[in-house]
Each structure stands twice: as structure tokens, then as C-alpha cells.
Computed example of a mutant assay.
Amino acid sequence: MLILPTVTRLNIAFYLFLPFFLFFAKKNRLIRLVVLLIYMTLLNLTYPVYNSIIKNYPSLVEVRYESGRDASFGLRYALFNKTLEKFSELTTNEKLLGAGNEASRNMIKANFKSDLQTHNDFIRFLFDFGIIPTLMFLTFLLIIFSKNKATFMIGLIYLVSFYHNMLYQLIFILLAIYFFKIKLNEN
């Protein structure tokens, strides 16, 4: 009930899908893994899908913004697009191994004249560390987060927090590792 007044779209969506997530948390590891893969894919489609909704159904945005203009999303989408554009311009080596820690942040500073985050830690990590480390990191997360009910739910929260610049809030990973090591009743 306390999330609804914030009108924070991803958080509301997460809580609306909570019964669905809890249902799959009780399933076997393979099913949790598949759900996590689908979840990550859908999270990465958030900005393009929301942009399409704004273009085709602008009245839905007016619920949150009286002017009918979602400036918050506009900025986030611009940051997302600029990061993707600049990623495509990187050398092959940089695409594979990254442009360096904080490279995405510095690129945003240079292009937007302000110290902003991309509000999409998937693309941020990809830009900074490259395709190979990103795949390794996401594989590591999938292994840990699919282990049991507790790690699954922690993983879902951590992954949605990637849109709140919380990639480096490692408490989620530490909790998941802790619960990964504990034998939980899978029933």
C-alpha cells in the first residue's frame, strides 16, 4: 500500500507481480533460472517499451504528470540511448573488455554537462566492463539467485534496483551468497 502513492513504476510493477514471483520461488532451480532470464530480458526492454507506451498512449503518463510530459523518463531514455550509442562507437577490445570503471559516468558528464547516472546498471556495467565481464557477472548472479527461494527473491529485488543505480550495493549479493550456502527447505 505504501508503494502506490509513490507512483514509482518499476516498484509498483514488482509488487504487482509479487504473487507470481512467490509462486515461481517455490519451483525447482531450473524454473527459477528460466524466470530470472525472462525477468532480466524484460527489465532490459523497460525503456524501449515505456517509450512506445508514451508515444502510443500518452494519456497513461498523465496519471503521473499533470503536464502529460514524463521528463524523468525522457532524461533516463536519453541517457540510455546516449550510452548505447557511445558503446557502439567503442573499439572491439573496449566492447569485449570495457571502457573502464566509471567510463559511462564520465561519458554522461561530458555529453550532458552534469554528473548523472544512466539509471540502467545493465548498460552501465556493459559500457564500463565490456561484454565478457558482463556475461560472467550475470552468469554468476543467475547461479546464485536461482539456488533457492530466498536467493531468488533477493535476486529479483537486486535486479530491479539496477534502475535505481544500485549495482554496487553489494549487500544483496552478500545476502544471496549467505542464503546460497544455507540449505533451505525447498517445499
Rank of each mutant, 00 (worst) to 15 (best):
F112H: 03
E89C: 03
F162Y: 14
N185H: 11
S161Q: 10
L90G: 09
F73S: 10
S52Q: 13
F122V: 03
L167T: 04
I123K: 05
E94H: 11
P48I: 07
N44E: 14
A150P: 04
A110W: 08
Y47P: 11
L75R: 14
S146E: 03
V61G: 05
R76S: 12
A176P: 05
R76P: 01
L16I: 15
N165V: 01
K181F: 14
E102L: 14
N44Y: 06
T91K: 06
N106R: 13
R76N: 09
F17E: 05
N111W: 08
N148Y: 00
K26M: 06
T46K: 03
D115M: 10
K27T: 09
F87G: 04
T83Q: 10
K26F: 08
T41D: 09
T139N: 06
M107R: 07
L170K: 05
F179V: 08
N187D: 13
I54T: 09
I12L: 07
V61T: 07
S104R: 03
S104T: 05
E89P: 02
K109H: 11
I123H: 05
D70A: 04
K82S: 13
P5E: 00
M153H: 02
A110K: 15
G98I: 01
S146Y: 06
F80C: 04
E62L: 13
M153E: 04
F21I: 09
P19L: 10
Y178C: 08
L42F: 14
P48H: 09
F137G: 01
I143F: 12
P48Y: 12
F125G: 00
V61M: 08
F180C: 02
I3V: 15
I154G: 01
L33K: 12
F137D: 01
I54P: 09
M136V: 15
A110T: 15
E89D: 10
V160W: 00
